[in-house]
Write a protein that binds this DNA or RNA. Sequence first.
DNA 1: CCGAATTGTTTTAAGCATAAAATGATTCCA
DNA 2: TGGAATCATTTTATGCTTAAAACAATTCGG
Lengths: 172, 172
Amino acid sequence: MPAVSGCINMLDSETKAVETPEDHAEELRLWLRLLTCTTLIEGEVRGRLRQRFDVTLPRFDLMAQLDKAPDGMTLSDVSKRMMVSNGNVTGLVERLVESGHLDRRTSETDRRVQVIRLTKLGRAEFRRMAAEHETWIADLFADLTPKDVRELMRLLAKTKASAQKSAARRRP
Amino acid sequence: MPAVSGCINMLDSETKAVETPEDHAEELRLWLRLLTCTTLIEGEVRGRLRQRFDVTLPRFDLMAQLDKAPDGMTLSDVSKRMMVSNGNVTGLVERLVESGHLDRRTSETDRRVQVIRLTKLGRAEFRRMAAEHETWIADLFADLTPKDVRELMRLLAKTKASAQKSAARRRP
DNA sequence: CCGAATTGTTTTAAGCATAAAATGATTCCA
DNA sequence: TGGAATCATTTTATGCTTAAAACAATTCGG
């Protein structure tokens, strides 16, 4: 590297930050680490759900959404909440209705809309799974102090906001 | 709630922390937030890869692993690194060999082993994609200060270690 | 040596996931 | 009022993903 450009960079770095054309290696590493953590935990939860309850993670997630909505949700709501495609929800719901965990009916007021709810069976099974699930999560995060947890919550909130802003820039 | 048990809990909370039989709501919220962040960013990256380069995220991830290993990797290595199942890699590799991005050969010394490498085409295309990919990530994390990034890195490292420990407890 | 584990990969069956196009219902507004 | 736009969902085509079983090659221990 020519000495001159090195100097320019050094001067820049005093005023603002390192400003080499592209120095985003740190963010990239952060993203990979975030992804690793999530994949690790998700895999662990998936395996335990399968072993203990013979249920898949997507099914569990869907039931978790419905457990929070006693009056039911539309498929679109579910799709937005779970951040998955519409078509995905259609199939997932189909299987859970089939197995008796979900009740599905067409809205009275808008015949485009399908409203789904947990059945009695579905709610009972979900509650049973959720109780144990919570202990798994607690165990997976066991080495974090309460302060760590608070700090992570704060930083991830900031991360989420940043990512949403960036996404919105591309699709306004 | 009876007043007595309320008092007991309050006393406990002074010495150590709230110790109701199960109070893991914070960890649960943290997990959901972590998952949300990852899903959000992953979806954004997936969409941009598809739009700009007509490539899927798993293909990109596999090529990223191989770019770091000029001498190639075995399928098992790839599978461990990517934290996906063996069978998954088999199919992924098949399609990338088919499209001319990967070269695959049986190891000279162990005929069970398949060694895969990026082809010239594969490497060139990956480099092109990776450069742009890095700017997307930088943009997605743009609102985090360098200090935020460092702090997140540290806390996620701790999280990863905690989760690995917990996973190891179940499968020693 | 040789059979029993182990290791690396593939196959199988089922389910999950996406994007894009299609379908059907509602709303908007000229 | 009637057509266009929008909205909710489903369908289609393709690809990803997993767990478990099957297969094949190697290593290990007696």
